[in-house]
């Protein structure tokens, strides 16, 4: 199974990058921020998060900031921030498109 360059982000990927947008964080903080931000709707397992962090690091979307008490702190790179913003715009466009049709349907 060849590894493809990321084109769109899954929900969990999006929230990992989003959690890092405010500054460097370690893995568990990312999990907590995601959980709180989504009101418990999205929760990321430690193994899944670790795999995502490794992949994002390989892709150059984030970088290891420092290690403290066996906890790795990660920070977004400019490239990672660009991907996050692109995904955000894509999601907004999707919501806007949905609004055009579905809100009219709801009103009717």
């Amino acid at each position: 199974m060849a590894r493809k360059k990321l084109e769109t982000l899954t929900e969990q990927m999006y929230y990992v990058l989003l959690a890092l947008s405010a500054g460097p964080r370690h893995g568990y903080e990312i999990m907590q921020v995601t959980f709180q931000l989504t009101g418990g709707r999205v929760s990321i397992g430690a193994g899944t998060l670790y795999a995502l962090l490794s992949r994002f690091e390989e892709e150059g979307y984030l970088t290891l900031h420092n290690v403290q008490d066996r906890r790795k702190y990660y920070a977004l790179t400019p490239s990672g921030r660009a991907v996050l913003h692109e995904e955000y715009r894509r999601l907004r466009r999707q919501v806007a498109d949905g609004a055009k049709l579905l809100e009219e349907e709801d009103m009717a």
Partner: peptide, 9 residues
Amino acid sequence: VPIQSDGRI
């Protein structure tokens, strides 16, 4: 939360 939360990954 289960350690692996994404079946595809």
